[in-house]
Structures are given as structure tokens and as C-alpha cells.
């Protein structure tokens, strides 16, 4: 998740990973900020300072945090995508069944046959978006 949040072009992967893991803030930037804050800050050495810090605490100091992240290969992301696709299909099946269990939802089964042409058309459009 960190590596997805760290690179701009990978930000869309972040949301996908978040979905699969079911945790973390919605926004990749928020996740990255959270991560950065969690890193311990180190004080930069200041050569102009005459008095050592422990004589006087009330000074402005420059601190730094080092963020390390892995930049994964495209093979890695293709694997993640493949898993995400399966995950998504299973979630769709799951929510279909859940919507049937929901007592408030009235579902018509007799009209099912009539929807075939509609579903066929949708698949055709996916196969050929220009049509």
C-alpha cells in the first residue's frame, strides 16, 4: 500500500489494495501522511550552533524524516491486479446474494428470460466499445 501511495501514477492501485485489505484511510495522500508522521524525526546537525542543544531547548531546529518505499515491478502489479479481479468478481457474487437475502428488496424472477437480450448487448459493448 505504501508503494502505491508513494508514486503518483500508482495512486489508483492504492484504493484497490485498500479495498482488498479492508483497512486504511480512503485517500492515498492521507495514508502517506500518516506513514510519514509515524517515522521518527531526526535532528539535522547544525554547524552554526555554538551552544550544545542541552543548554538551551528553546530553539528552532531543522529535522528530517527518511521515507523508504519499494518500487515494485510491473509483474508485481499485474499479479496484484489479477488477484484484485478475482476478488472483485467474488465480491460481486457476494453482493448479488446479499441483495437477495435483504427482505426489503423485491426481486422478479419471471422476467429473467426477458433480460437476456439486454445482458447480451452489454457484453457485446464490452467486447467492442465502438459498436
Amino acid at each position: 500500500m505504501l508503494s502505491a501511495a508513494s508514486e503518483t501514477e500508482l495512486a489508483t492501485y492504492y484504493t484497490m489494495l485498500r479495498e482488498m485489505n479492508d483497512q486504511g484511510p480512503e485517500d492515498p495522500d492521507a495514508y502517506l501522511a500518516q506513514h510519514v508522521r509515524s517515522i521518527e524525526a531526526e535532528t539535522l546537525p547544525d554547524n552554526n550552533r555554538i551552544m550544545p542543544l542541552y543548554y538551551n531547548f528553546d530553539v528552532t531546529t531543522a529535522k528530517q524524516r527518511k521515507v523508504t518505499f519499494t518500487s515494485f515491478s510491473s509483474l508485481h502489479w499485474r499479479m496484484v491486479m489479477t488477484l484484485a479481479q478475482i476478488h472483485y468478481r467474488v465480491s460481486q457474487l457476494e453482493s448479488l446474494l446479499e441483495s437477495l437475502t435483504d427482505g426489503d428488496t423485491k426481486v422478479d424472477f419471471d422476467g429473467t428470460d426477458a433480460t437476456r437480450a439486454q445482458v447480451e448487448k452489454m457484453i457485446e459493448q464490452l467486447a467492442d466499445p465502438e459498436a
Binding site: 428488496t105 423485491k106 426481486v107 422478479d108 424472477f109 429473467t112 426477458a114 433480460t115 437476456r116 445482458v119
Partner: peptide, 13 residues
């Protein structure tokens, strides 16, 4: 209609 949804014909899929 009295029903909100139609169960889709999944056979093309």
C-alpha cells in the same frame, strides 16, 4: 412495478 429488481439472465455472461 411492485418489484424493484429483475434477476438478470446470467447465461450470456
Amino acid at each position: 412495478s411492485p418489484v424493484q429488481y429483475v434477476f438478470p439472465d446470467l447465461s450470456p455472461l
